[in-house]
């Protein structure tokens, strides 16, 4: 591998965003290196989803810069579909396409965006379904699967596009407790393989296990951007402490 160690996959510089008068993001800067796993946490409404959606241009921002693999997301000349094709995204509510079979969910992007042949796409879909343990469900529709299974399909769907990095927006918070681990297991494995990941999540067990860094947000600002050991060990902002004590207590 001739990868430059520590080269940036995602770089955010002083990103600010407003909804009318209301400022959702204030001066957010951070950087995710290749192969790094970042967990973003913070209270509800602090702007975590908005921040992560700025990475693939699903949300526009008025100030600052976001660079993904050398491409500026906010630049009007950027071919966003092309950029997004290789930035995987997993949503809180799965967002599988309900009218398609699981296989079709996994092949549509490959066929329509990456212009792969149907056979090639199906082969890849089968391989990734097998990897998340859902080979048997290929012919079913999303409505016939449990939440945990649907989220694993959503991860497989993103992986089919050969992503250079993956964004997760609270991938387990809509799941029943007994299904959380099956999804986290897939994510842990992905992290261990060296996937670059930016995860909005309150699963601190997951963060402890695989995160390189943890970002804490409050009221649209990045309050804390620390290595995992710093974040869980040594002193940090009061807000983050309070937040942590709340979510770790239950």
């Amino acid at each position: 591998m001739n990868q430059v160690p520590n080269s940036a996959m995602i770089e955010m510089r002083n990103v600010s965003k407003w909804y009318g008068q209301f400022q959702v993001l204030t001066d957010c800067s951070t950087r995710v290196s290749k192969g790094e796993v970042i967990v973003v946490c913070g209270p509800s409404g602090s702007g975590k989803s908005t921040l992560i959606k700025c990475v693939n241009g699903l949300e526009v921002f008025q100030q600052g810069e976001v660079i993904v693999d050398g491409t500026s997301v906010g630049d009007p000349k950027t071919d966003l579909p092309r950029l997004r094709a290789h930035v995987g995204m997993v949503f809180q509510h799965f967002e599988l396409f309900p009218h398609m079979t699981i296989t079709d969910n996994l092949t549509i992007g490959q066929i329509k965006v990456l212009r792969r042949s149907k056979e090639e796409a199906q082969e890849k879909a089968a391989r990734l379904l097998d990897r998340v343990g859902l080979k048997q469900q290929a012919h079913k529709h999303p409505g016939q699967l449990s939440g945990g299974q649907q989220q694993r399909v959503a991860i497989a769907r993103a992986l089919c596009m050969d992503p250079i990095c993956m964004l997760f927006d609270e991938p387990t918070s809509a799941l029943d407790p007994e299904m959380i681990n099956e999804v986290l297991d897939v994510m842990v494995e992905l992290a261990k393989e060296g996937m670059t990941m930016m995860c909005v999540s309150h699963e601190m067990g997951f963060a402890r296990k695989v995160a390189h860094r943890v970002i804490f947000m409050d009221q649209g600002r990045i309050i804390e951007d620390a290595t995992r050991d710093e974040f869980f060990g040594t002193p940090r902002s009061e807000r983050a402490q309070l937040f942590l004590s709340k979510i770790l207590s239950h």
Partner: peptide, 24 residues
Amino acid sequence: GQLMAGLAMGLTLPQTYRHVLLPT
């Protein structure tokens, strides 16, 4: 989220309407 999911995988807006939003 359906629109976002379509766009996020790299479909263009017309493709997202055609393959994701309109069928449902």
